[in-house]
Amino acid sequence: MRALVVVGLLAVLALVFVVVAMVKDSQSNAGTAEGCPKGWPLADVTLREPKDVKINVYNGTDEVGLAGSVADDFRNRKFQVKKEGNAPKAVDDVAVLRFGPKGVGSAQLLRAYFLNSAKLEPDLKRKDDTVDVILGNSFQQLATTTEVNQSLGDLGSPEAPPGTCPAPVGEK
Results as ranks from 00 to 15, higher is better:
130 T>M: 11
167 A>I: 08
85 G>V: 06
9 L>K: 00
81 V>R: 10
2 R>Q: 15
93 D>S: 15
96 V>K: 11
152 L>A: 03
99 F>E: 03
100 G>F: 07
75 R>F: 01
10 L>N: 07
121 E>N: 08
43 A>P: 09
54 K>H: 13
96 V>D: 09
135 L>Y: 05
156 G>C: 05
168 P>H: 00
125 K>Y: 05
145 T>N: 11
96 V>Q: 13
171 E>I: 05
81 V>L: 11
170 G>H: 06
74 F>G: 01
54 K>G: 02
8 G>S: 15
29 N>H: 11
152 L>S: 04
66 L>I: 08
82 K>N: 08
111 R>W: 00
73 D>Y: 03
123 D>F: 00
157 S>D: 14
137 N>R: 13
172 K>T: 12
95 A>D: 02
142 L>C: 00
136 G>A: 09
88 P>L: 03
26 S>F: 11
41 P>N: 09
105 G>I: 07
14 A>T: 13
71 A>D: 08
130 T>I: 13
25 D>E: 09
18 V>L: 13
159 E>F: 01
75 R>I: 11
103 G>Y: 07
51 K>V: 14
62 D>G: 10
31 G>K: 01
134 I>R: 06
163 G>D: 04
61 T>V: 12
72 D>M: 13
93 D>Y: 07
47 L>W: 09
29 N>M: 13
168 P>R: 10
136 G>F: 08
166 P>R: 05
39 G>I: 11
98 R>V: 12
133 V>I: 15
86 N>Y: 07
116 N>K: 11
12 V>M: 09
131 V>Q: 01
106 S>P: 01
80 Q>E: 10
41 P>R: 10
70 V>Q: 06
146 T>D: 13
52 D>G: 06
74 F>H: 06
83 K>L: 14
34 E>D: 14
66 L>H: 06
109 L>E: 04
69 S>P: 00
112 A>G: 06
147 E>V: 00
74 F>W: 02
145 T>P: 03
170 G>R: 09
30 A>M: 08
106 S>H: 02
118 A>L: 05
92 D>K: 15
166 P>Q: 07
129 D>F: 01
113 Y>V: 00
132 D>P: 02
162 P>T: 14
92 D>E: 15
77 R>T: 03
139 F>I: 02
39 G>Y: 09
51 K>L: 08
18 V>R: 10
171 E>Y: 14
108 Q>V: 05
65 G>L: 12
150 Q>K: 13
100 G>E: 03
120 L>A: 08
9 L>M: 12
114 F>E: 06
140 Q>D: 11
91 V>C: 04
164 T>N: 05
123 D>H: 02
61 T>A: 12
97 L>A: 02
115 L>I: 00
77 R>C: 09
6 V>H: 10
37 P>C: 06
73 D>F: 06
50 P>Q: 05
96 V>H: 04
36 C>A: 13
53 V>A: 12
16 V>D: 01
39 G>T: 09
98 R>W: 01
172 K>F: 10
136 G>T: 05
153 G>F: 01
52 D>E: 14
57 V>S: 08
99 F>Q: 04
108 Q>W: 14
96 V>Y: 08
87 A>D: 11
47 L>N: 02
39 G>S: 10
89 K>M: 13
146 T>F: 11
48 R>W: 04
157 S>T: 09
16 V>M: 10
41 P>H: 07
117 S>Y: 04
124 L>Q: 05
138 S>A: 15
86 N>I: 04
16 V>H: 01
51 K>Y: 07
129 D>M: 03
161 P>S: 03
62 D>E: 15
42 L>Y: 09
